[in-house]
Computed example of a mutant assay.
Amino acid sequence: MFGNDKHKSPRGGHAVETLIGPHAVIRGDIAFSGGLYVEGTIHGKVTAEDGTAAVITIADNGHIEGEVRAPVVVINGRMTGDVHAGERIELAAHARVSGNVHYKVVEMAAGAVITGRLIHADAPMAQLTGPEPAVVARLKTKAEAQEA
């Protein structure tokens, strides 16, 4: 009744243990556990400690430039870099992601934008690497033949 609800994230109901305030700019890598709520800017890799029930939330005005790795990722701000969500990623309406999103479960609201690839955790590696060299060589040969 008293005290517990004020430390809850607006999305998902996870406890926020660490807050990066709106005027904070952090340059460097961060390792965390529990709940991390980002209203400021982080330039660096943000990684949840292995085996922890960690949640990172990027608020409306929050921005991360670097890779993010966590079981649960909630984005409503800007993310520049790859995201690896071990369990789930939630992309809210104002989310702007420039990078690949690796996920098991994705929830994406109307208005969210991804400039990159959505890659399911169970996707075969062949899909991630692009066409095989033999296929590329055949395409080049066909293109050269059409030009002649």
Rank of each mutant, 00 (worst) to 15 (best):
Met1Ala: 07
Met1Leu: 05
Asn4His: 11
Asn4Arg: 12
His7Glu: 08
Lys8Gly: 06
Ser9Pro: 06
Ser9Ile: 10
Pro10Val: 12
Gly12Gln: 02
Gly13Lys: 13
His14Thr: 11
Val16Cys: 02
Thr18Tyr: 01
Leu19Asp: 06
Leu19Ala: 08
Ile20Leu: 05
Pro22Ala: 14
Ala24Lys: 09
Val25Leu: 03
Ile26Glu: 01
Ile30Glu: 09
Phe32Val: 09
Gly34Cys: 10
Gly34Leu: 07
Leu36Val: 10
Val38Trp: 00
Glu39Met: 15
Glu39Arg: 15
Glu39Phe: 06
Gly40Ala: 15
His43Ala: 10
His43Asp: 14
Lys45Tyr: 01
Lys45Gln: 12
Lys45Phe: 02
Val46Ser: 03
Val46Arg: 01
Thr47Val: 12
Glu49Gln: 15
Asp50Lys: 14
Asp50Met: 08
Gly51Gln: 10
Ala53Gln: 13
Ala54Asp: 06
Val55Asn: 14
Val55Tyr: 11
Ile56Tyr: 01
Thr57Asp: 09
Thr57Gln: 08
Thr57Trp: 01
Ala59Leu: 10
Ala59Asn: 11
Ala59Ile: 14
Asp60Leu: 14
Asp60Lys: 15
Gly62His: 05
Gly62Ala: 07
His63Ser: 13
Ile64His: 03
Ile64Lys: 03
Glu65Val: 14
Gly66Thr: 05
Glu67Ala: 05
Glu67His: 03
Glu67Trp: 00
Val68Glu: 00
Arg69Met: 00
Ala70Trp: 00
Ala70Glu: 01
Val73Leu: 07
Val74Pro: 02
Ile75Asn: 07
Ile75Phe: 09
Asn76Arg: 13
Arg78Leu: 10
Met79Gln: 10
Gly81Tyr: 03
Gly81Val: 00
Asp82Trp: 04
His84Cys: 03
Ile89Arg: 08
Glu90Ser: 04
Leu91His: 04
Leu91Trp: 04
Leu91Asn: 01
Leu91Phe: 04
Leu91Met: 06
Ala93His: 10
His94Glu: 14
His94Tyr: 11
Arg96Val: 00
Arg96Ser: 03
Val97Tyr: 11
Asn100Cys: 08
Asn100Met: 09
His102Leu: 09
His102Cys: 04
Lys104Ile: 14
Glu107Pro: 04
Ala109His: 06
Val113Pro: 13
Ile114Met: 12
Ile114Val: 14
Gly116Tyr: 12
Gly116Ser: 09
Arg117Asn: 11
Leu118Ala: 07
Ile119Thr: 06
Ile119Met: 04
His120Pro: 06
Ala121Tyr: 08
Pro124Cys: 02
Gln127Asn: 12
Gln127Cys: 05
Leu128Asp: 10
Leu128Ala: 11
Thr129Glu: 05
Gly130His: 08
Gly130Ser: 09
Pro131Glu: 11
Pro131Ser: 08
Glu132Asn: 06
Ala134Trp: 06
Ala134Pro: 05
Val135Trp: 01
Val135Asp: 07
Val136Glu: 11
Ala137Arg: 09
Arg138Met: 04
Leu139Gln: 13
Lys140Ala: 15
Thr141Glu: 15
Thr141Asn: 15
Thr141Val: 07
Lys142Val: 00
Glu144Gln: 15
Ala145Thr: 01
Gln146Cys: 11
